[in-house]
């Protein structure tokens, strides 16, 4: 199978430890002898290192922003870390699907543990899962340029340094808006302790996502106000 792959594809597998013993040793010899391939090897390593640096930067950046605003900085940091670390578990165990959101937190707890919710997980759109994984893995996805600077949820203040982050003193969240390329047609959310990832399709064809320690009912009200 690998004979059909070109050298750059093999290099990618090599870097990821995905070649078997013989393939690896064969490729190593090629890499040592081929200066063009070696340059590509350097480039791929630079890229991987850059991505890891970005992850560290954004983790610190998120932490420092919340520290400046003096609201539950440590808690938020734990939230994001926990979500990042447990998102797979969350999808598998805690995933729930709000067909029609009702302002009752108890419904969430019921939904989370219900057999129905866990069954629904099997039906969740693959792209949706990817979207949520990405949102929770890294700040890289949390764009703020599409959030109207004049929009402010009732009772919240905006982070002056990051237009898509808001707090009301107890709760904090970040908003991400982009085209609804996953064609989500009704709201969905994931809960993990106090924390929520809430996705809401807007009437204008975009998808808004909220990530943070905010009650789902409040997140829902915020999202509805954004949709008006």
């Amino acid at each position: 199978m690998n004979s059909k792959l070109n050298q750059d594809e093999l290099l990618s597998l090599f870097l990821d430890n995905e070649l078997d013993h013989d393939q690896l040793n064969e490729f190593l010899e090629e890499l040592k002898a081929n200066s063009t391939l070696k340059e590509k090897y350097k480039t791929y390593i630079e890229i991987d290192n850059a991505v890891n640096s970005l992850t560290q930067i954004y983790q610190r950046k998120r932490s420092s922003i919340f520290h400046i605003l003096k609201y539950r900085a440590q808690k938020h940091s734990k939230i994001v870390s926990a979500l990042a670390a447990t998102i797979i578990l969350s999808i598998g165990i805690l995933s729930t699907n709000t067909i029609e959101f009702k302002s009752n937190n108890y419904l969430i707890a019921d939904a989370v543990s219900s057999v129905e919710a866990q069954t629904q997980f099997e039906l969740v759109n693959d792209e949706l899962i990817q979207h949520v994984i990405y949102l929770t893995m890294s700040d890289l996805a949390m764009k703020n340029d599409l959030v109207n600077p004049n929009w402010l949820p009732v009772g919240f203040v905006r982070n002056p340094k990051k237009l898509n982050e808001f707090t009301n003193g107890d709760e904090a969240f970040a908003v991400h808006i982009e085209k609804n390329y996953i064609n989500l047609d009704h709201p969905k959310y994931w809960v993990n302790d106090d924390d929520v990832i809430y996705l809401h399709p807007l009437k204008d064809g975009r998808l808004v996502s909220i990530v943070g320690n905010i009650r789902p009912d409040l997140a829902n009200r915020v999202l509805i106000s954004l949709d008006k």
Binding site: D16, N52, E127, Q130, I133, Y134, M137, L140
Partner: peptide, 11 residues
Amino acid sequence: IDLRTAYSLRV
């Protein structure tokens, strides 16, 4: 998103 998710999970 499918590319960046796969790549991010790996790297």
